[in-house]
Structure formats: structure tokens, C-alpha cells
Amino acid sequence: MRFLFLLALIVSGYASSHSLTPTYPSLELSYVPGVYKADLELFNARKDISYYEVGVFDAEWNAITAAITPKKIMKVPHSTSKKITVYIPAASKDRAVYICTKSKTLFTPVTQVTVILSKICSKLK
């Protein structure tokens, strides 16, 4: 029963949401000497959102310079996933704590609404 519930959760999560995996990515040496990398996957099931921004932060939420592929702000069409690689210089490796994805909103002509900005942060091991 618990398994069924978990399965339902996973399926429902893929129905209309924003998610980022893994929760605890690890930094590994990349093919560039002195640069570490972490691999993540973003899934966009939000119909109202097509763009996401990726950022790296320290424990105090200060931004850390990092190179991101495919791009820092990327298009992720509805119901698709995008593999993200974050490259962090060795000098910043120990400061980096969070890798976050944040939805970007394009305003459409509507009146008196609230829009939801979703942000999910994974924590580096």
C-alpha cells in the first residue's frame, strides 16, 4: 500500500510540476583540470512555464560563479526534462552548497492575478 502511494506520488509529480533530481548531487572532477562538475536533471510539467534559471549558492545564499550547460537560463518545454551540468572551479568547490533551479515567468496580459515562482534547490554532498 505504501509502495502504491509512493508510486502515485511519483506519477502525480510528473503530471504538472517542477522537480529537480538528485536531492544530494556530488561534485566530481570534470575533463577540465581544476574544475569540478555536478549532473542534475530538471523536469518541467508546468504548462505555464517554459524557462528556468540555474544558480549555485553558498551556505549564506551568496551566488557563486559557475558555468552551466546547456545555459544558465534555458528553455525547458512542458513535459520534458533537461540534463544540466554545473561546472564549479576548484577554488569555489568547498563554498558551494546549493544548486537551484528557478522558474522564469513571462507576463501575459491578465488582470489581478498572482503568479507562482517555483524554486527547487539540491544540496551538494
Binding site: L6, I10, G13, P22, A45
Partner: peptide
């Protein structure tokens, strides 16, 4: 089944 948080509007 991996650890994950999903936010849905």
C-alpha cells in the same frame, strides 16, 4: 524511487 520534491501550481 529517488528522493525528490515536486512543486505543483
Amino acid at each position: 524511487v529517488e528522493s525528490k520534491c515536486s512543486i505543483t501550481t
